[in-house]
Protein backbone atom coordinates (compact mmCIF):
# COMPACT_ATOMS: atom_id res chain seq x y z
CA UNK A 1 0.00 0.00 0.00
CA UNK A 2 1.19 3.46 -0.84
CA UNK A 3 -0.08 6.74 0.54
CA UNK A 4 1.39 8.69 -2.34
CA UNK A 5 -1.51 8.17 -4.73
CA UNK A 6 -2.52 10.68 -7.37
CA UNK A 7 -5.35 13.01 -6.51
CA UNK A 8 -8.08 13.89 -8.91
CA UNK A 9 -8.39 17.67 -9.20
CA UNK A 10 -12.17 17.62 -9.71
CA UNK A 11 -12.89 15.08 -6.98
CA UNK A 12 -14.32 16.28 -3.65
CA UNK A 13 -11.90 16.88 -0.80
CA UNK A 14 -13.61 14.05 1.07
CA UNK A 15 -16.53 11.75 0.37
CA UNK A 16 -17.68 9.37 3.07
CA UNK A 17 -20.66 7.05 2.74
CA UNK A 18 -22.48 4.90 5.27
CA UNK A 19 -20.02 5.42 8.11
CA UNK A 20 -20.91 3.50 11.25
CA UNK A 21 -18.73 3.16 14.31
CA UNK A 22 -19.48 0.60 17.00
CA UNK A 23 -17.43 0.36 20.21
CA UNK A 24 -17.49 -2.86 22.26
CA UNK A 25 -19.74 -5.84 21.60
CA UNK A 26 -22.73 -7.65 23.06
CA UNK A 27 -24.13 -5.95 26.17
CA UNK A 28 -21.41 -3.31 26.13
CA UNK A 29 -21.94 -2.36 22.49
CA UNK A 30 -22.16 1.38 21.88
CA UNK A 31 -23.00 2.82 18.46
CA UNK A 32 -21.13 6.14 18.30
CA UNK A 33 -21.92 6.90 14.66
CA UNK A 34 -24.71 5.48 12.53
CA UNK A 35 -24.84 5.44 8.72
CA UNK A 36 -23.27 8.86 8.23
CA UNK A 37 -22.50 10.16 4.73
CA UNK A 38 -20.56 13.33 4.14
CA UNK A 39 -19.13 15.20 1.18
CA UNK A 40 -16.92 18.29 1.31
CA UNK A 41 -15.81 20.00 -1.86
CA UNK A 42 -12.41 21.58 -2.39
CA UNK A 43 -12.30 25.13 -1.06
CA UNK A 44 -15.35 24.48 1.10
CA UNK A 45 -15.43 25.22 4.84
CA UNK A 46 -17.92 23.10 6.74
CA UNK A 47 -18.89 23.37 10.42
CA UNK A 48 -19.95 20.23 12.28
CA UNK A 49 -22.27 21.08 15.16
CA UNK A 50 -23.92 19.04 17.83
CA UNK A 51 -24.10 18.38 21.55
CA UNK A 52 -21.44 16.46 23.43
CA UNK A 53 -21.61 12.74 22.65
CA UNK A 54 -23.29 13.33 19.31
CA UNK A 55 -20.45 11.56 17.46
CA UNK A 56 -18.73 14.64 16.00
CA UNK A 57 -15.22 13.68 17.08
CA UNK A 58 -15.85 10.07 16.01
CA UNK A 59 -16.71 11.28 12.52
CA UNK A 60 -13.72 13.64 12.48
CA UNK A 61 -11.24 10.94 13.55
CA UNK A 62 -12.73 8.45 11.10
CA UNK A 63 -12.32 10.90 8.22
CA UNK A 64 -8.87 11.76 9.63
CA UNK A 65 -7.84 8.09 9.31
CA UNK A 66 -6.93 7.74 12.96
CA UNK A 67 -10.01 5.88 14.17
CA UNK A 68 -11.37 3.64 11.40
CA UNK A 69 -15.12 3.18 11.04
CA UNK A 70 -16.67 -0.23 11.59
CA UNK A 71 -18.60 0.06 8.35
CA UNK A 72 -18.53 2.52 5.43
CA UNK A 73 -16.29 3.91 2.73
CA UNK A 74 -14.03 6.95 2.74
CA UNK A 75 -12.56 8.56 -0.35
CA UNK A 76 -10.23 11.54 -0.04
CA UNK A 77 -9.37 13.59 -3.12
CA UNK A 78 -10.81 10.81 -5.26
CA UNK A 79 -8.57 8.17 -3.65
CA UNK A 80 -10.41 5.37 -1.82
CA UNK A 81 -8.70 5.08 1.58
CA UNK A 82 -10.98 3.05 3.86
CA UNK A 83 -13.40 0.23 3.27
CA UNK A 84 -14.92 -0.36 6.68
CA UNK A 85 -12.07 -0.93 9.11
CA UNK A 86 -9.84 -2.06 6.25
CA UNK A 87 -7.28 0.53 5.10
CA UNK A 88 -6.83 0.69 1.35
CA UNK A 89 -3.60 2.64 1.55
CA UNK A 90 -0.72 3.37 3.95
CA UNK A 91 -2.68 5.58 6.36
CA UNK A 92 0.34 7.21 8.04
CA UNK A 93 1.80 8.17 4.66
CA UNK A 94 -1.59 9.40 3.48
CA UNK A 95 -2.04 11.54 6.59
CA UNK A 96 1.36 13.18 6.28
CA UNK A 97 0.84 13.98 2.59
CA UNK A 98 -2.82 14.95 2.37
CA UNK A 99 -4.29 15.76 5.77
CA UNK A 100 -3.85 18.58 8.27
CA UNK A 101 -5.09 18.55 11.88
CA UNK A 102 -5.89 21.29 14.38
CA UNK A 103 -7.25 20.58 17.86
CA UNK A 104 -8.70 22.42 20.82
CA UNK A 105 -5.24 22.36 22.36
CA UNK A 106 -2.53 23.39 19.96
CA UNK A 107 -0.58 20.19 20.78
CA UNK A 108 2.71 21.80 19.81
CA UNK A 109 5.81 19.76 20.63
CA UNK A 110 7.18 21.52 23.73
CA UNK A 111 10.88 21.06 22.96
CA UNK A 112 10.60 22.60 19.47
CA UNK A 113 10.21 26.31 18.83
CA UNK A 114 7.38 27.68 16.69
CA UNK A 115 9.30 27.42 13.40
CA UNK A 116 10.55 23.93 14.23
CA UNK A 117 7.01 22.77 15.06
CA UNK A 118 6.03 23.63 11.49
CA UNK A 119 9.33 22.43 10.06
CA UNK A 120 8.97 18.97 11.62
CA UNK A 121 5.73 18.34 9.70
CA UNK A 122 7.56 19.17 6.47
CA UNK A 123 10.64 17.08 7.26
CA UNK A 124 8.45 14.12 8.16
CA UNK A 125 7.12 14.44 4.61
CA UNK A 126 10.69 14.31 3.21
CA UNK A 127 11.14 18.04 2.56
CA UNK A 128 14.87 18.87 2.82
CA UNK A 129 15.68 20.72 6.09
CA UNK A 130 16.66 24.04 4.48
CA UNK A 131 13.54 24.18 2.29
CA UNK A 132 11.43 23.08 5.25
CA UNK A 133 12.82 25.91 7.34
CA UNK A 134 12.12 28.48 4.61
CA UNK A 135 8.57 27.22 4.11
CA UNK A 136 7.92 27.15 7.88
CA UNK A 137 8.94 30.81 8.18
CA UNK A 138 6.72 31.71 5.20
CA UNK A 139 3.74 30.02 6.83
CA UNK A 140 4.35 31.73 10.17
CA UNK A 141 4.52 35.05 8.35
CA UNK A 142 1.28 34.21 6.51
CA UNK A 143 -0.39 33.57 9.88
CA UNK A 144 1.09 36.68 11.48
CA UNK A 145 3.42 35.02 14.01
CA UNK A 146 6.76 35.31 12.18
CA UNK A 147 8.16 37.37 15.05
CA UNK A 148 7.63 34.40 17.42
CA UNK A 149 9.38 31.86 15.17
CA UNK A 150 12.19 31.26 17.65
CA UNK A 151 9.98 30.98 20.72
CA UNK A 152 9.14 27.75 22.47
CA UNK A 153 5.39 27.01 22.80
CA UNK A 154 5.52 27.80 26.53
CA UNK A 155 6.44 31.40 25.63
CA UNK A 156 3.48 31.85 23.24
CA UNK A 157 -0.06 32.95 24.06
CA UNK A 158 -2.98 30.58 23.37
CA UNK A 159 -3.86 32.42 20.15
CA UNK A 160 -0.27 32.37 18.94
CA UNK A 161 0.02 28.67 19.71
CA UNK A 162 -3.14 27.96 17.73
CA UNK A 163 -1.81 29.97 14.77
CA UNK A 164 1.37 27.91 14.83
CA UNK A 165 -0.79 24.76 14.94
CA UNK A 166 -2.69 26.00 11.89
CA UNK A 167 0.61 26.73 10.13
CA UNK A 168 1.72 23.16 10.93
CA UNK A 169 -1.57 21.80 9.56
CA UNK A 170 -1.03 23.76 6.33
CA UNK A 171 2.63 22.85 5.98
CA UNK A 172 2.25 20.04 3.43
CA UNK A 173 -0.55 21.79 1.54
CA UNK A 174 -3.18 19.23 2.57
CA UNK A 175 -6.32 18.53 0.59
CA UNK A 176 -8.33 18.21 3.76
CA UNK A 177 -7.98 20.07 7.06
CA UNK A 178 -9.74 18.64 10.09
CA UNK A 179 -10.20 20.83 13.16
CA UNK A 180 -11.72 19.74 16.48
CA UNK A 181 -12.91 22.67 18.63
CA UNK A 182 -9.99 24.83 17.48
CA UNK A 183 -11.32 27.98 19.15
CA UNK A 184 -12.48 26.55 22.48
CA UNK A 185 -9.44 27.85 24.33
CA UNK A 186 -9.55 31.29 22.70
CA UNK A 187 -11.56 34.44 23.37
CA UNK A 188 -14.30 35.32 20.85
CA UNK A 189 -12.12 37.76 18.91
CA UNK A 190 -9.21 35.32 18.58
CA UNK A 191 -11.65 32.50 17.89
CA UNK A 192 -13.20 34.36 15.00
CA UNK A 193 -9.76 35.19 13.63
CA UNK A 194 -8.88 31.49 13.55
CA UNK A 195 -12.17 30.57 11.84
CA UNK A 196 -11.60 33.26 9.23
CA UNK A 197 -8.13 31.88 8.75
CA UNK A 198 -9.59 28.48 7.87
CA UNK A 199 -11.92 30.10 5.36
CA UNK A 200 -9.06 32.06 3.82
CA UNK A 201 -6.91 28.93 3.58
CA UNK A 202 -9.73 26.90 2.07
CA UNK A 203 -10.55 29.50 -0.52
CA UNK A 204 -6.98 30.47 -1.39
CA UNK A 205 -5.49 26.97 -1.39
CA UNK A 206 -8.45 24.89 -2.45
CA UNK A 207 -8.46 22.65 0.59
CA UNK A 208 -11.60 21.25 2.16
CA UNK A 209 -12.02 22.16 5.82
CA UNK A 210 -14.17 20.35 8.40
CA UNK A 211 -14.43 22.11 11.75
CA UNK A 212 -16.11 20.61 14.81
CA UNK A 213 -17.31 23.54 16.91
CA UNK A 214 -19.68 24.64 19.65
CA UNK A 215 -19.03 28.29 18.89
CA UNK A 216 -22.20 29.62 17.21
CA UNK A 217 -20.90 33.21 17.09
CA UNK A 218 -18.69 32.56 14.08
CA UNK A 219 -20.99 30.33 12.03
CA UNK A 220 -21.31 33.02 9.34
CA UNK A 221 -17.73 32.26 8.39
CA UNK A 222 -18.62 28.75 7.15
CA UNK A 223 -19.93 27.82 3.72
CA UNK A 224 -22.09 25.11 5.25
CA UNK A 225 -23.04 23.75 8.66
CA UNK A 226 -23.98 20.19 9.53
CA UNK A 227 -25.86 19.22 12.67
CA UNK A 228 -25.17 15.88 14.30
CA UNK A 229 -27.08 14.16 17.06
CA UNK A 230 -27.06 10.63 18.52
CA UNK A 231 -24.50 9.54 15.95
CA UNK A 232 -26.55 10.67 12.95
CA UNK A 233 -26.44 13.72 10.68
CA UNK A 234 -29.65 15.56 11.53
CA UNK A 235 -29.73 18.58 9.26
CA UNK A 236 -27.66 20.56 6.82
CA UNK A 237 -27.73 24.27 6.10
CA UNK A 238 -25.84 26.21 3.43
CA UNK A 239 -24.63 29.73 4.04
CA UNK A 240 -23.28 31.91 1.29
CA UNK A 241 -21.28 34.67 2.74
Amino acid sequence: MNGDRTFSSDAPAVAATGLTKIYGSGNTEVVAMRDVSLRIERGEVVALLGPSGAGKSTLLTAVGLINPPTVGHITIGGVPVMDGAQPLTDLAAFRRQHLGFVFQKANLIPFLNAAQNVQVALEINDTPPRAARRRALELLAYLGVADRAGNLPAALSGGQQQRVAVARALANEPNLILADEPTAALDSHRGRQVMELFRQVAHERGAGVLVVTHDHRALDVFDRTIQMEDGRLESERSEKI
Binding site: I66, A92, R96, L99, I109, F111, V120, N125, R168
Partner: peptide, 16 residues
Amino acid sequence: THDIAMLKLMGARNRV
Protein backbone atom coordinates in the same frame (compact mmCIF):
# COMPACT_ATOMS: atom_id res chain seq x y z
CA THR B 1 3.77 10.05 24.92
CA HIS B 2 1.69 13.01 23.74
CA ASP B 3 4.43 14.34 21.46
CA ILE B 4 5.03 10.91 19.92
CA ALA B 5 1.27 10.54 19.36
CA MET B 6 1.28 13.95 17.62
CA LEU B 7 4.20 12.91 15.43
CA LYS B 8 2.33 9.71 14.51
CA LEU B 9 -0.83 11.70 13.79
CA MET B 10 1.17 13.86 11.40
CA GLY B 11 2.20 10.62 9.70
CA ALA B 12 5.75 10.24 11.04
CA ARG B 13 7.37 6.98 10.04
CA ASN B 14 8.31 4.52 12.75
CA ARG B 15 11.98 5.18 12.12
CA VAL B 16 11.53 8.83 13.15
